[in-house]
């Protein structure tokens, strides 16, 4: 009986000690976000080889699927692609003339092509967040590839997120659609400022909320929304998405609505990391 009592006390002490340690860790990681990242680094890098293996298996399965399509399917696909190619060629001609004009106008304005030629690095997503409440993902490139905290992450030509943790061989990226993420943005034609804010309630519909638009702003339906120059972390001029259903707020001072992001957050597998942070730009 006495021995059993002893045992109960021992595990109770362990519980109390661990509770205090956990609470301390929560406070520490809240106050100094990067103080505990070396521990995280060692733990997560243990899993990196297994995760990379999983990804390579997936890729080989994908390749198998592709190589098994029949000849007819391939022929019809070639035809479709050829007709698409023609249409695109025609478009390219139009674009080239537009581009020529644009370059001339840019020269007149003495704007160098400051934003269009950032160096980027391709990365593969090797893991998603551990719970369904948040929209973080882990990529297979880390500090040794030159990735730093606050670098912007792109998918296609749209903004996908921000690097929030960097370790050896991996980094954790927080998507812009996560509930507590905010991006200061402008409309591409009228330069009206607004805030793009992630919202879990809207995520299922594929929207993000678009807030704090000035009452007199002229943001039209499906207007392109890009990152603002005033943002402290996001590089300027990156496409975020298209404005949708903008209405006056009840306070009469601002407008708000939705934004349809250009990034397909559910199905992205490879992303581009911009190797310049906003801080280094200036």
């Amino acid at each position: 009986m006495k021995r059993k009592l002893n045992f109960v006390f021992k595990i109770k002490y362990a519980l109390i000690a661990l509770t205090i340690i956990m609470l301390g860790a929560i406070v520490l990681s809240y106050a100094y976000g990067e103080g505990l990242s070396s521990i995280r680094n060692t733990v997560v890098s243990i899993f990196s080889p297994a995760r990379n293996l999983v990804i390579s298996i997936r890729d080989s399965i994908d390749e198998d699927k592709q190589s098994k399509s029949t000849k007819e399917e391939l022929m019809s696909r070639i035809e479709a692609l050829e007709s698409e190619n023609e249409a695109l060629n025609q478009k390219l001609g139009d674009y080239n003339s537009d581009m020529f004009e644009l370059n001339e106008l840019r020269d007149l304005l003495a704007l160098s092509e400051k934003y269009s030629d950032f160096q980027t690095l391709g990365a593969t997503i090797i893991a998603k967040d551990t719970s369904n409440w948040f929209s973080e993902f882990t990529i297979d490139k880390g500090s040794e590839d030159g990735i730093e905290v606050d670098m912007n992450v792109l998918w296609g030509n749209g903004l996908a997120g921000l690097v929030t943790e960097v370790g050896e061989g991996y980094s954790i990226v927080t998507s812009i659609i996560q509930d507590d993420m905010n991006v200061s943005a402008v409309s591409s034609s009228t330069r009206d400022t607004c805030i793009v804010s992630g919202d879990l309630e809207l995520m299922e519909k594929g929207y993000v909320s678009l807030m704090y638009i000035q009452n007199d702003a002229k943001i039209g339906e499906y207007e392109r929304i890009i990152t603002s120059t005033t943002s402290s972390k996001y590089l300027p001029g990156i496409l975020i998405g298209y404005a949708y259903d903008i209405k006056n707020d009840t306070n009469g001072l601002t407008k708000s609505g939705y934004l349809i992001p250009v990034v397909d957050f559910k199905h992205m597998e490879h992303v581009l990391v911009v190797l310049t942070t906003k801080e280094q730009m200036y």
Partner: peptide, 24 residues
């Protein structure tokens, strides 16, 4: 719980605390 914390970019110890009490 700690693995859950390390696997996400959030606070460390947040899931750990919950999982510890569930197990205990």
């Amino acid at each position: 719980g700690l693995l859950m914390d390390f696997g996400s970019g959030g606070l460390i110890g947040f899931y750990g605390l919950f999982y510890m009490f569930v197990g205990y």
